[in-house]
Nucleic acid binder design. Structure first.
Lengths: 234, 234
DNA sequence: CCAAAAGTGTTATGGATACACCCATGA
DNA sequence: TCATGGGTGTATCCATAACACTTTTGG
């Protein structure tokens, strides 16, 4: 029965979360100071060990919550890293997850002194293979962002078009023409214009919008394909 | 030091390989009959356990080789599956890999009676969550195929354009216009026309081509983006 | 009244699609 | 000679890209 299994080795399994944050200053990464050896005091992704009885997604949520207080974040699995020597202290295989949120969702404060946002350009050296994970996550985020409107998971469900455009510009690190961007996004008919304006970004104010999830899902189910940035080049 | 680690659970780690095969009959999947419990006698993906000292890619290669004799297959990591009850006998987390090869690379024979090709439409029920893995791999293959010429890993390094087109048609399950397909592929300048013809498919014969890897890599390095099928819909 | 960001249309270009006929050959 | 699959060119269309001025309002 189980005998066949018993002949094999078991491994530590970790989950590491690449949390991208977005605000007026662009894209940032959530990093923590490790408080245990090896690498105590070094920067690291938000991570922890898989426990008995939980699945991988649950582990990611739990670990993220425990270290940052963040809850109900849409995490997506990125890849699994298993170089024998990737962790200097023991053989640990790590499953990486990533998410994109508004930086406002996690406020650096005293009780969370060990976690903070770091601008994407100019990341510090992270422990183990974490920089490699981040690089891969950025590529994935770009691919993803090109084909569907991320942002659902973003901002307090309301946002202005200039904000949304700034998000895409920081993901792609390139300027986008205002008129073309608006044309494209609005032509999808998945946004609803709200009567209020957001006055924080300018004197004139910009109209707020919100996603219309039902229209969005309807399109998705009908096989519609979103292409916000034409990533011919990359 | 390692004390922090020791407090945590260890897990069995498996690798499962989704091997797509292509020939004149379309796409197929390589499946094996399990020869141990649980699920002895049922169909399963090519899989096995991770060993100490090898990384994930190496494990996938080793397991694939052991069960099928296949060597030097370009395997790509797909995703990791970790539902606590996915394996009925023990908690096993499985890292799925996939590849696309020519069915001629693996010939079913007496010594390999337990592994065989199965047409993609009309797969049997596979053990555990293996059907789910296959479904995900198909989607990934389509995305991949849309953005770069797969086929490098395909056929004895020589192929005809009708063959290549048939490959794309079976991946996408849709007809492609002959002229448009040729135009697109040839305009990339990554194929070399060979003087010989392949006479197996027709009386007239079709010219053989081969990839020119150096031109291909040159383009890749220059940031060129391949788009063979415009997957506006899916 | 001025600075700063929001908002708005049109044109040109290029890639994607649609489409039909001749060619070579083995049987 | 004919049936079968291989090979070729062009016209239309639509999505993308480029581009500049007016509007609003807080200071």
């Amino acid at each position: 029965m189980e005998n066949y299994y018993k002949a094999h080795t078991k491994f530590y399994l970790a989950v590491d979360c690449i949390i991208f944050g977005f605000d007026e200053d662009g894209l940032k990464l959530l990093v923590v100071k490790r408080d245990f050896e090896p690498g105590k005091g070094q920067w690291s992704l938000v991570g922890g060990f898989l426990s008995q009885g939980e699945n991988l997604d649950e582990a990611a949520q739990r670990i993220l919550h425990k270290l940052t207080g963040l809850e109900n974040i849409y995490l997506e699995q990125l890849a699994t890293y298993g170089e024998p020597a990737r962790d200097s202290a023991a053989r640990v295989v790590s499953i990486a997850y990533y998410a994109l949120i508004s930086t406002t969702k996690f406020k650096e404060n005293k009780s969370n002194r060990n976690a903070c946002w770091y601008p994407l350009n100019g990341l510090p050296n992270l422990i183990f293979d974490h920089n490699q994970m981040v690089a891969k996550a950025i590529l994935r985020l770009r691919r993803k962002a090109a084909s569907r409107p991320i942002g659902f998971e973003l901002l307090p469900a309301q946002f202005t078009l200039p904000q949304m455009q700034a998000l895409y510009e920081s993901i792609y690190q390139q300027q986008i023409d205002k008129r073309n961007f608006r044309k494209k996004i609005l032509s999808m008919n998945i946004l609803e214009k709200l009567p209020e304006k957001d006055m924080t970004g300018s004197k004139r104010g910009a109209y707020k919008y919100k996603f219309n999830p039902s229209k969005y899902n309807e399109l998705l189910n009908n096989g519609y394909h979103f292409e916000i940035i034409n990533n011919g080049k990359q």
